[in-house]
Design a protein around this nucleic acid. Structure first.
Ligand SMILES: [Mn+2]
Ligand SMILES: [Mn+2]
Ligand SMILES: [Mn+2]
Ligand SMILES: [Mn+2]
Lengths: 159, 159
DNA sequence: AAACTTTTTTAGCCAAGGCTAAACTGTGCA
DNA sequence: TGCACAGTTTAGCCTTGGCTAAAAAAGTTT
């Protein structure tokens, strides 16, 4: 029977106490950082998916899948171009740069790990897809590794 | 050796195929919805925590823990007041309304479930806190329930 | 009591990310 | 060939959530 006496703080206390202010602030700062890159990553990932599955990435399709207006997409494409993630010429389809492809691949992989993890936890597909879309940007490398390992062990057990 | 022939779509295909455009759009819409309420919830939750642990919630402390400037906090407090979540008088401490208390309690609970879940997955405390701060807003009720059940079963197994 | 310090508030700047409306381009069909 | 329609771009509006700077109130010290 384990005791926690000389094993760090009492775990029941760990929940009710606030972390020190600086650590607390770093938590929120990490969330703000994630939100800065989140949309960019989703656009790049989506463009990569469209290129792979539909052969080309048109603004109309991006708008339909993002659920926003074309004007919104047009401005975002300009921003992606400014950041060196896509190449595009007026009235033509959009392509990823080398950097864009790398980001798309990264995002696709991370998104997949989170989605599979939720599925192997027992979450239904539609819900898992919704939750993964938001969660993926807030999962650290550490947690991602643990999720991946968990998924693998689950799938091994159930084959 | 299992076959997937009459068992729905081939699971290996489930990852590489895009969902239909309308479903895809709903995923991103859900993320946008979550982001609309996210900050509000974090403020209300933090104010509740400060009231419980420090006895009062001062703008300075909120700013320090949020990692933002006081001017930013001041404007957010006005917004919370407009939304009927807090009461505040000039140069005095901030209090939660009935609705505010309810939201704080909700958020606190949900945050706790996600944090405990990550811990029981094996994520270290500091990382779990950072990830939970962002993930909590993107976890559906369905997934939350599954996380809670998982945590309970883990803790039962390890006592 | 006066002076100084801290806290709070207000005003105004900026970028991001939604929107509508209108102009422009390109394509396909009569 | 010409024209209509679909797709794209641009201009300009709005809200959110950061920021700085400066004014005003409250609290503390001498
Ligand atoms: Mn994604
Ligand atoms: Mn996403
Ligand atoms: Mn949070
Ligand atoms: Mn988020």
């Amino acid at each position: 029977m384990p005791t926690y006496s000389d094993n760090g703080p009492d775990p029941s206390e760990q929940d009710t106490n606030l972390p020190p202010p600086e650590q607390h602030a770093r938590q929120y700062a990490a969330v703000r950082d994630a939100h800065e890159t989140e949309l960019i990553e989703d656009y790049v990932e989506l463009i990569g998916d469209l290129l792979d599955h539909a052969g080309e990435a048109r603004a109309t399709d991006i708008a339909a899948r993002m659920g926003v207006r074309q004007a919104t997409v047009a401005r975002m494409i300009r921003r992606l171009n400014d950041q060196g993630l896509v190449t595009n010429e007026p009235y033509r389809s959009i392509f990823l740069t080398e950097r864009g492809r790398a980001m798309a691949e990264e995002s696709r992989k991370r998104h997949g790990v989170v989605l599979q993890f939720l599925r192997s936890l027992g979450v239904d597909d539609a819900t898992a897809r919704i939750d993964a879309e938001g969660m993926e940007h807030h999962v650290s490398e550490t947690t991602l590794g643990i999720m991946h390992a968990f998924t693998r062990s689950q799938n091994k057990a159930g084959d």
